[in-house]
Amino acid sequence: MMRLFLVRHGESEWNAQRLLQGQADVGLSSRGRDQALALSATVQRFQPERVLVSDLARTRETAELLGYAEHEPVSALREINVGRWTGQNIDDLMAEDAQAFQGWRSGIYTPPGGESWQSFKQRTNGVVAELRSGALERVLMVAHGGVIRALLESLLGLSPGRVVPVSPASLTVLRVGPLNGSAEARLEAFNYRPDALAFDAPD
């Protein structure tokens, strides 16, 4: 069995402004850096054997602040591409078409020029499938809220519409069996932060 330690990056500059990022390469805010540092001791106790990181700046900086300057950038762990919605204010999108935005959050609507949920789910799950074919026991992934929600659906059948936004610099833990084994994936922790729970995290 393998444990996946999934960490969302700390708050970014655009998160702080409630701007939808997608694959825009935005760095962490000062608050985001503090959040990542606060989680570092928790993550280090698990002693991951591999550290995979989305190749965007906010995740790589988070990994470094967690104590893993040596990590493997993986482009397949990038956030979902939101097309023309990139850089748009979430409140404005909701005001313009709440049904479309909620449909996107539920995985049933693709913004103009964006990536479909099914395609996104397939590319992110491909990273986990490769890991499950090996013999690793502890893997840390520093990625994005959408990536974590996609893996929760791929591995546990939890649809994105039933999962609250993943908190910045929070830890989610999944226990998964080998790719051809019979053991089902299990959720061991979700949205853990050492400081406080957050129920209104930005997408």
Rank of each mutant, 00 (worst) to 15 (best):
L4M: 06
V7Y: 05
R8Q: 04
R8T: 03
H9N: 14
E11N: 08
W14R: 09
N15D: 14
N15A: 05
N15G: 09
L19P: 04
G22K: 07
G22C: 10
G22W: 11
Q23F: 04
Q23L: 06
D25S: 15
R31M: 13
D34H: 15
Q35I: 10
Q35D: 10
A36E: 09
L37H: 12
L37I: 08
A41D: 15
T42F: 02
Q44I: 08
Q44F: 10
F46Y: 15
R50T: 15
V51M: 00
V51W: 00
V51Y: 01
V53C: 14
S54Y: 09
S54F: 03
S54Q: 14
L56C: 02
A57I: 13
R60Q: 15
T62R: 03
A63F: 11
G67M: 05
G67F: 02
Y68D: 12
A69L: 13
E70L: 13
E72Q: 14
P73Y: 14
P73I: 00
P73T: 05
V74T: 11
S75Q: 14
S75P: 12
L77A: 03
R78C: 02
R84L: 13
W85T: 12
G87W: 01
Q88V: 01
N89L: 10
I90C: 01
I90Q: 09
D91T: 07
D92K: 13
M94F: 07
M94S: 07
A95P: 07
A95V: 06
A95T: 14
E96I: 06
Q99R: 10
A100P: 02
Q102A: 05
G103F: 09
S106D: 14
G107V: 11
G107H: 11
Y109F: 15
T110K: 05
P111K: 05
P111F: 04
G114Q: 04
G114E: 00
S119Y: 15
K121R: 15
Q122E: 13
T124C: 13
V127N: 10
V128D: 09
V128N: 06
V128G: 13
A129M: 05
L131C: 05
R132D: 10
R132K: 15
R132P: 04
S133K: 14
L136N: 09
V139M: 10
V139I: 13
L140W: 12
A143E: 12
H144D: 06
H144K: 07
G145F: 09
G146D: 01
G146I: 03
V147D: 08
V147H: 03
I148D: 03
R149D: 04
S159E: 14
V163Y: 06
V164H: 14
P165G: 07
P168Q: 01
L171A: 03
L171D: 01
L171V: 11
V173Q: 09
L174H: 00
R175A: 14
V176K: 02
V176M: 07
P178N: 00
L179K: 04
G181H: 06
S182H: 11
A183T: 07
A185F: 05
L187Q: 06
L187C: 00
L187M: 12
E188D: 10
F190E: 03
Y192A: 08
D195G: 02
D195F: 11
A198R: 13
A201R: 00
P202S: 11
D203V: 15
D203W: 12
D203G: 02
D203M: 12
